[in-house]
Nucleic acid binder design. Structure first.
Lengths: 229, 229
DNA sequence: CGCGGCATGACACTTATGTGACAACCACGC
DNA sequence: GCGTGGTTGTCACATAAGTGTCATGCCGCG
């Protein structure tokens, strides 16, 4: 549910600082200490955005960039370069490396998070927008409220996250495993069937005065948010 | 808490003068020496108002204006243009540039602050106004008083700041961390649960003669000032 | 018609929040 | 300096809300 940011940075102090601050800003953060590890982490799970140091051991930032751009899964993943003053060559400035933006160290954390949000808004607006809508359902992240045709719908935290996730890609079918990861977090282990129960609860909460059921069950595949004809 | 004004002005003496005076008037001021820097500063943190010189190095004031109006975050941010006598073309006078107002140099500082307040009052009244209102609750910053349906409500300093903060954005949910930062200051370390206690105290103080509880608890997220229907 | 997949209500259990009590603290008037 | 009333931060405990599992019964599809 939270945007997943991968930090590829060899300087431990900076990486920790980034980790701490981004976490506080509501991002899920993973760290990699060099280019090689970075590429591995990307293999494991495609990040929503990558923070990439320009100078890295083993595989340089530029090279990582190139490789990421070569792979279809990460071709469009936003990359934000971290450069030291002086490394700020024309190549960086022109973003010829394939990166989408760059900041020069040292930088204010607020500047960095602002740029991260800006990039995410460009590529995955549904990750950062305050308000999601589908049919007559409105989910407002800022006020943490959900309404259906104007009426307020009360959801528990889990149902809220579940609906939030489904509303990010209406129509798309998600497996229970995928929902598990997205809603419960990648390292929680609960019965897969629990997803069914929560979908049920969400359905019940959304079921007001003759409104259609916005969740489609796809037998032996998962669930999707859409109008099942 | 203080309104954040960004001054984009290349003439250093004037910028300093503005900085000094606006600070004295209770604004938080950041400076940018040219259009490019101005846009960067805006990225970092959206100002509550922008003072923009008409003639600027790198990116002109008009161009900055255009770009700010193109971005959703700053579309409604008030912009006050500073122009030299003679630059006062019809375009400026008609505010066709996207600016909300303009003053001609040289100007009296009092005129400028008056215009700034006028603009802020239009867009973010809660920042300028001495009094905040929500439903039947009135908070007066000047006299440091709070009333509910006319009756006086006694609050301790902490509860006052807490209510003040919540009233700035009714409906929005704030995490305990966020409230901690806003009310206690960013570098104080007290138990997170202390927030609960103060919210409780605030609630109790606000609880007079059958009035509804204006604070909504959002489980596993935080608190918001609004009617939890 | 039979079977695996799904929906659902019950329920025991976790977790999060509300609250009263309390000791430390503070500003202030004496 | 020294009480003193008002504030504050923490705790412990009570209460409320949300969660994960299961057993049961239903349903669609082959």
């Amino acid at each position: 549910m939270k945007p997943y940011v991968l930090v590829v940075e060899d300087e431990d102090a900076l990486a920790t600082l980034l980790d701490y601050n981004l976490d506080k800003e509501g991002f899920r953060v993973e760290r990699a200490a060099d280019g090689e590890e970075g590429l591995l982490k990307v293999e494991e799970e495609t990040p929503d955005l990558i923070l990439l140091d320009w100078m890295l051991p083993k595989v340089s930032g530029v090279e990582v960039c190139r490789q990421l751009r070569a792979k279809p899964e990460t071709r469009r993943t936003p990359i934000l370069m971290l450069t030291a003053r002086g490394e700020e060559t024309d190549k960086v400035r022109g973003l010829d490396t394939g990166a989408d933006d760059y900041v020069v160290k040292p930088f204010a954390m607020s500047e960095l998070t602002a740029r991260i949000r800006a990039l995410l808004r460009r590529t995955r607006p549904e990750l950062v927008d305050e308000r999601l809508e589908y049919a007559d359902i409105v989910l407002d992240r800022g006020s943490r409220r959900v309404t259906r045709s104007g009426r307020n719908v009360h959801l528990g935290p889990t149902e809220f996250r579940l609906l939030d996730f489904l509303m990010q890609r209406p129509g798309r079918v998600f497996s229970r495993e995928r929902l598990m990861d997205a809603v419960w977090g990648p390292n929680t282990y609960v019965e897969l069937r629990t997803v069914d129960v929560h979908v049920g609860r969400l359905r019940k909460a959304l079921r007001i005065s003759g409104a259609f059921d916005p969740i489609r069950t796809v037998r032996s595949a998962g669930y999707a948010l859409d109008q099942h004809a």
